[in-house]
Write a protein that binds this DNA or RNA. Structure first.
Lengths: 341, 341
DNA sequence: ATGTTTTATGCAAACGTTTGCGGTTTCGGT
DNA sequence: ACCGAAACCGCAAACGTTTGCATAAAACAT
């Protein structure tokens, strides 16, 4: 970058006034006379003056920037969240800088570091899968920068959180299967160290309990990787077992998809022989055949809400943080062909 | 943010030396004695000193930040690109700040504006659909900031570009249909003002020409919106016309999906009665039934390559820009069930 | 001893803004 | 004429770094 970018000083010099006057004129400060105001305004956009945000940030001690750290960008749910973040951030005049952890807590740590270095006003995060402690997040709030978690939260750090009511969604999905008449409902669970997996499993269990259906351990299978191949082989085993299920509630849609493949390969039909409900309502859920029932998570809204919370905290002038909000967004069960008898 | 963040001055004061010495010590400058070096290093990480990137940026006149403007984050292809960008940017020590235009050139303009204001070192962009001119991009390079386009490029601005070989991909897809034995191949085209749409159409036409198949105007239908509903109704019309096609090449997978719906509704089977090939290889393409053949675009790689080009330009010290690179990435035809007889 | 180089450090300006405070000038009121 | 208050503007410091230059002390060479 060679080209000289025009500064306040240039305008000042050209008009033979001081930089302070230019600065004030530019922001319509009452101390400045209409004449000089007009003069600098005119010159400013003749020269196409653009304020240097870096200098402003340094001086004003805030950057109007919020940092985002997520496990992986390339994932529909997260990109929906980002979009929601961008939406309210943009309207509030904030920039967002994105980092991804690739599910590594080490990388996450570094990201937090550089975000701090660039002095973001706040960060919005969803934690990596392999975290064992959350000191790096705690450090951040200790240094006085605002923090909001979404979806995958760190329970132990006291800050704003917005999650979806996984337990509720799982419960609703399971109840739906029960009331459709299915009796032997299995669960393809997610990795056990993630709160969301547990919550979904709990919702599943609660529903069974409420309807007096015994919970069978062999009907709860953990799909740790999250690939559909994994779910497919697990489902195949399940179908070949001594107590094959007549319905499946999956921890996510990819697992559900794998299960569907297994079911079809075995020559069974969906939903007549085996029904299935997924979780997250990925883009493809409505497109496959039969269309997959799924519990929709409001990703976009989550991003919005997290950002609103964060910005409120950023705007909080007092030196005690706002009381931590814990927003729980409702899921939305979308019943499609895969689960109605 | 109340908490005082430790600065170089704090360290200087504590050690009774000057800020300049601290600064130099921190970066292992040879002028500084080992003793004082050790002293400041020790104190620095005892106090957990973190350099203020804002101040550094202001002083060094670059931010180590690259701006990204894309039509919409919430789209598999773009999120793949972002991921690629993040990948090489991270390794090169750059932050990325993301903006989305939502396909509005007005918003795009604003985004460019704020990116310039935050003095990003360069921007990577894919243009919005409704652009009529690209002055805002030209202004950017005139101001001396590096620019690289990907996928949807502005031909008239002379800068680095990385695109996929749409013409090639479309040609390959069409040839594939021809060699499978299909004779009456229609094309669901994209909006005419986008170069990529034209290139794909041209590839389609070239293939027909090469095989001596006449090009029929009524077999080229523009799907401007990009929704599958649109493609569905258009395909229905096509199938009911006097010269119904026996194969379709669609400008993108969503259109292809709509076409598939139309075909099925009419009671025809895929690929026996009508074959279909899409473009972009969206996530769902392999999951629907029949699995949709599609021309895969290397999104991640595009992001990587664009970023490499951009960083090279940023590092270019001379005041004449590097010669504009024009990288053309090959597509990859994925033949699935929807198109093999 | 003197002169010369080396080593280690500090001064101060600069990056582009913002802002408290003080200083002129102008003007209306008496 | 004089006073007080507006009205308008500039000085300078500050935000946290970096860096050219000067300088002081120490080491070395004569």
């Amino acid at each position: 970058m060679k080209s000289s970018q025009v500064t306040i000083k240039d305008i000042a010099k050209a008009l033979n006034i001081s930089a302070s006057t230019v600065s004030r004129a530019l922001k319509d400060h009452p101390d400045i006379s209409p004449d000089t105001k007009k003069a600098v305004m005119d010159l400013a956009d003749e020269l196409n003056y653009q304020p240097n945000s870096i200098a402003q940030s340094l001086r004003k001690r805030h950057t109007n920037t919020i940092g985002v750290v997520i496990p992986e960008i390339e994932h529909f749910f997260f990109s929906a969240v980002i979009s929601g973040i961008e939406d309210v951030a943009y309207k509030a005049g904030y920039n967002i800088i994105i980092t991804q952890s690739n599910e590594s807590s080490e990388r996450e740590k570094q990201n937090l570091q550089t975000l701090f270095n660039t002095r973001v006003d706040g960060v919005i995060a969803s934690v990596a899968r392999d975290n064992v402690n959350y000191n790096h997040y705690q450090n951040l709030v200790d240094k006085g920068i605002a923090l909001a978690f979404f979806d995958r939260v760190a329970d132990e750090v006291d800050t704003h959180k917005v999650v979806v009511d996984d337990e509720f969604g799982a419960h609703e999905a399971t109840v739906h299967l029960i009331t459709e008449g299915y009796k032997r409902i299995a669960h393809l669970a997610g990795p056990a160290n993630l709160t969301i997996s547990l919550n979904r499993m709990n919702g599943y269990k609660r529903a069974l309990n409420e309807y007096g259906i015994p919970i069978k351990d062999e009907h709860i299978c953990i799909c740790g990787e999250g690939t559909f191949e994994e779910a497919e082989t697990i489902t195949t085993q399940l179908l070949n077992s001594t107590s094959p299920p007549d319905a499946l509630f999956a921890n996510n849609d990819m697992a559900a998809y794998g299960a569907m493949k297994a079911i079809k390969k075995k020559g069974l039909s969906i939903p007549e022989d085996v029904a299935i409900v997924g979780f997250s309502n990925w883009r493809f859920a409505s497109l496959i055949e039969p269309a997959l029932s799924s519990v929709a998570q409001p990703g976009f809204e989550m991003g919005q809400e997290a950002t609103r919370l964060l910005i409120a905290e950023i705007n909080n002038q007092s030196d005690t943080p706002l009381p931590s909000e814990n927003r729980i967004l409702k899921t939305n069960l979308l019943v499609r062909e895969s689960s109605k008898k």
